[in-house]
Nucleic acid binder design. Structure first.
Lengths: 148, 148
DNA sequence: ATGCCTGCAAAATATTTGCATGTAA
DNA sequence: TTACATGCAAATATTTTGCAGGCAT
């Protein structure tokens, strides 16, 4: 059950043996690669990464991991509720380490995703889901570009 | 200037020589392929299509057009302001013939985009764009799935 | 005639998968 | 030991591009 795991996301903020526990709880073996990636993802504040970017970072850090494993790991983390997928650009998939409800800026010039720093966004006038459907998530993406 | 062209989008609702005029106004030669695609896109009500789907439709209708040309045409139409790109699914790009301000349902089970049928959505508490940036567009995507 | 279009195939990108090898339990 | 993970390369999928020939003006 991902809800239970989600409650332990806070543990991810710190380094160390803690990551091992979280991975276990998610049903994922704490392998060298997964631990290294989790450390990159959760070692600091919240982040938005693409598979390509995370792989480059790991490589720079001297962590040996294949791009395919990065993709697989990101998907596993997402399925476990440890990451959230953000769809802003058709060409690339971004993952957000912040799984709580919030929205995003997408900086068009830089292909970069940033959290919208307030929680004050309210959406009113949302219609009901079409018959027989339920709403799973509401995404607000504010596209911005530099003042040319 | 796309603003000017945009004012003529209404002309696209009807078939006939009108499409020729609109394409001309957009700086696009009214070729057989473009006219056929424009007719599919604007011949009825508003639609959401992917390149693949539009190509299949054209082929079924006996219109000979290559997939590459469909991609190119969709991009040209978008650049001319005749279509709007909707990013909801990382795997596929959708184009919306409705270029006015509105938002979308994304039906996850079917990979389908639907306009949200009201104009009543209001978003409050939107922060300013980051320094030196301006907001180009706000997208609201309501993801729905069937009640399992 | 001239320059923009089209189709085809090939390239470019992003992501997934099959399989042999390696490793956690 | 046994099941699950990893790495590599190849497969897939989507979209773009180069180029030779075609069509609109």
């Amino acid at each position: 059950m991902t809800a239970h795991i989600g409650n332990h996301r806070q543990m991810l903020g710190s380094r160390g043996p803690c990551l091992t526990a979280v991975l276990r709880m998610a049903g994922l073996r704490p392998t060298r690669q997964r631990l290294a990636l989790a450390d990159l993802l959760y070692g600091g504040g919240h982040r938005h990464v693409s598979a390509e970017a995370l792989h480059a970072e790991a490589t720079t850090d001297g962590v040996t991991v294949s791009l395919a494993t990065v993709y697989n790991t990101l998907r596993q983390f997402k399925d476990a509720g440890l990451l959230r997928e953000v769809t802003v650009d058709a060409a690339r998939t971004y993952f957000d380490t912040n799984t709580s409800d919030h929205h995003h800026f997408f900086i068009e010039d830089e292909d970069r995703v940033v959290d919208i720093p307030t929680n004050d966004i309210e959406i009113s006038g949302l219609p009901d889901a079409p018959k027989g459907m339920k709403i799973t998530h509401v995404d607000v993406v504010v596209r911005v570009k530099s003042l040319s």
